[in-house]
Design a protein around this nucleic acid. Structure first.
Lengths: 132, 132
DNA sequence: TTATATACGACTATATTAGTCGTAAATCAT
DNA sequence: ATGATTTACGACTAATATAGTCGTATATAA
């Protein structure tokens, strides 16, 4: 119920890590997984996604690793969550239209309002608000 | 990711139903399950919990059913969610202290802030805001 | 006494999330 | 060149959480 996933959690830990780091210092998935007690393969996949989305830069080879590619101020949290997890809504019918009960549903409108509130809260927040 | 559960969803549908209803009119789980396409046993369990919490009154026997017991204005949403689902927090360590990674965790404080924001948003909302 | 309804715990099924594994490709040092 | 190290990525398995079902008991109106 209204929980963020580990995928998001680990991504935030990683991003915050980069911030506490010299600007262009690389950190490998291995180092980081040790430092924070996160399964290495899982963290690796998460860093890979962040790299694909150009939030971090990846450098291959020995002494390779990852570093921040952008200023965290420029990435809003709604976008960030949706990069990591796909559409963010407290109920599926915010995006999906495949709900059988739509006819008889009497709570769609108020839940949409709540949804909008949560989204706008995260819209008005950037990665920097979390990683600083 | 940040989803409400069907348990909560069905509970809200039920409560809204009662509001659109004559004040003391009883509705059985069976009727309601038909009207909204919700599995009867599941809805029944949810109504039973609402009854246990004195949010609705239950009347047994033929022609029995449920009706609102309180003014929805008097129940705040945080409390309501926690009645239905237990502790509400975007991460477990908001309540639990059993996290192995606490030492190295670098995102607890900012996530707590977000959590507080969400909770206070729901604290400032009553059931009536959803069921009207 | 029968039919209907709530009460409730135990159980099963399904979906989501978390984590692992195998393999490929880039890169650096020797 | 070759081996060690690291990213890249999809397929797979494991664990957990959510959704839904079932059996049985109890109350009550007709």
């Amino acid at each position: 119920m209204l929980k963020i996933t580990r995928k998001v959690e680990y991504a935030l830990i990683a991003l915050r890590h980069f911030q506490n780091q010299e600007k262009d210092k690389l950190t490998s998935a291995k180092e980081m997984s040790k430092a924070y007690g996160i399964p290495q393969e899982l963290l690796a996949k998460i860093l890979q996604r962040l790299a694909r989305e150009n939030i971090v830069d990846a450098v291959k080879g020995p002494a390779g690793g990852y570093k921040l590619a952008v200023d965290p101020k420029t990435i809003n949290m709604t976008k960030f969550f949706e990069i990591m997890e796909g559409p963010m809504g407290i109920m599926d019918c915010y995006f999906d239209s495949g709900c059988e009960q739509l006819q008889s549903c009497n709570i769609r409108t108020p839940l949409n309002r709540i949804n909008d509130s949560i989204r706008s809260m995260f819209d008005n927040m950037t990665l920097a608000d979390i990683t600083y």
